[in-house]
Design a protein around this nucleic acid. Sequence first.
DNA 1: CAAAAAATGTTGACAATGTCCACATAGAGT
DNA 2: ACTCTATGTGGACATTGTCAACATTTTTTG
Lengths: 211, 211
Amino acid sequence: MTTHVSNPAYHHGNLRQALLDAAEKLLESVGIGGLTLRGLARETGVSHAAPYRHFADKTDLLAALAARGFARLAAALTASAAAHPLDSCQEFLTSCRVYITLGREHPAMYRLMFGQPQPGVGGQPELAAAGQAAYDALAAAMQRGIANGFFRNMPVQALAMAVWAMVHGLTELAITGHLLACGEAEGEETRISESACALLLSGIAPFRPGA
Amino acid sequence: MTTHVSNPAYHHGNLRQALLDAAEKLLESVGIGGLTLRGLARETGVSHAAPYRHFADKTDLLAALAARGFARLAAALTASAAAHPLDSCQEFLTSCRVYITLGREHPAMYRLMFGQPQPGVGGQPELAAAGQAAYDALAAAMQRGIANGFFRNMPVQALAMAVWAMVHGLTELAITGHLLACGEAEGEETRISESACALLLSGIAPFRPGA
DNA sequence: CAAAAAATGTTGACAATGTCCACATAGAGT
DNA sequence: ACTCTATGTGGACATTGTCAACATTTTTTG
C-alpha cells in the first residue's frame, strides 16, 4: 500500500504561483465576488485545502495578488515616464493616461489593490512594499518636474499625492460608472479624464501655460 | 392553539427601516465584511429569513444602504454650499473639506457607496437617484462658480468631474491609509488634502490667484 | 546511504452564510 | 365573518472558509 511510486501530480511543483495565476484570471472573469479559495483549488487541480500550505488565509492570497497589481502599475509608470525624458508636462499627461487605462482595463484587479485598508504595519509587507514602489515611481517623476522647473516648487509629497488622488479618483469613478452616469455618451470618460488631468496640470505649473 | 392574541412582536411594524438602521450601525462597528444578513436579523430580533420580505437579496439591502449614504452626502454638500453664497472659491474649499471629512468619518459607509459598479440601468433606481442628486449638488455649485467668474468658462461636467475625482481620490486614499503610508506623520492627511484641493482650485480659476 | 524532519497535498469535518420553500400569523378590505 | 395579502417563522440546502488528522514527497542529516 505504501506506493512509493513517484507521483509527479501529487506535488504540484509551484502551486503558489499557479494559484496566483488562476486567481488573476478568475478575477477578470468573475470579479472579486466570485473569487473563492475552493474554486481556485478546483481550477488548479488540487484539493480544497491545498492553498492553505501557501497562504495563511484568503486575505493573505488576496494581498499577494494585490502586490502583483502594484508591481505592474509601478512598471507601467516607470516605463511611460522614460518615454518623455525632456518634457515633464508631456510625461505627466502620458503617465496619467497610462495609470487610468491600466485601471480601466483591469477593474477587478485595480479595486482589489485598494480593497483592503492599507497594512500600516501589521499587514502583508509584500503588499506594502509594492505599493510603496508604485508611489516612489510617481514621486520621482514629480521630483524631476520640480527640479526642471516644469512644476511648482513645493513639497514633492503634496504634489505627488494631489496627482495620485486625481488619477485614482478618475480611475475609480470610471470603473464604477460614475464618470458617465450623468448624461454623457459612452466613451466620453476618456475625454473627461484627459480634461481633468490637464486642469490639474494647469494648477501644478508655476505659470499659466496655454489658454 | 390558534392564539389570536395580538402579538405585537410578530409583526415588527417597520422592519425595513429597522434593518437599515441596524445595518448602518453594524457597518461602522464591524465593517462591510462583518455585515451579514443573518446578523442583521439577529440584531433586529427577527428570524433569519425575515429580511427577505423587504429586500430581494443582500446586494439589494446594501444598495438601499448606499442610497442613504449618498443622500447624506448630498445634504451635507448643499448645506455647506449655502454657507458661502458670495465666494465660490471659499465655497469650493469648504465643500471639499466637508466631502472628505464625511468620508473619513464613515469609511465603511463611504466605501459601500462606491462598492458596487454603478447600476447603469438594471441596478437599484433608488441608488442611482441618490447618487445623481449628490452629483447635481456638486455640478450646481460649479455652475454658479462659472457664472460668477470664479472658475474657468468650460463645460460644467468636465469641471465637476475633475473636482469629484479629486475629492473622491483623496477620500479613498485617506481611508485606505495610502495618504500617509509614505513617511508622513499621523494627522498630515488633512494638510495634504487641503493642499491638493488648493492646487486644483488654482488650475480651475481663470487667472492665477495668489503665489 | 538510511533515517528523521520538513514540505506539501488529501480527506473529512464544522460552523456560518445566502437563499429558497412551506407554513403560520397579522392586518385590510369585502 | 371571510378572504386576500403582507409579513414573519422554521427548516432545509449548497457553498464557503478554515481546521485537524493523515499521506506522500522532498530534503536534511547522522
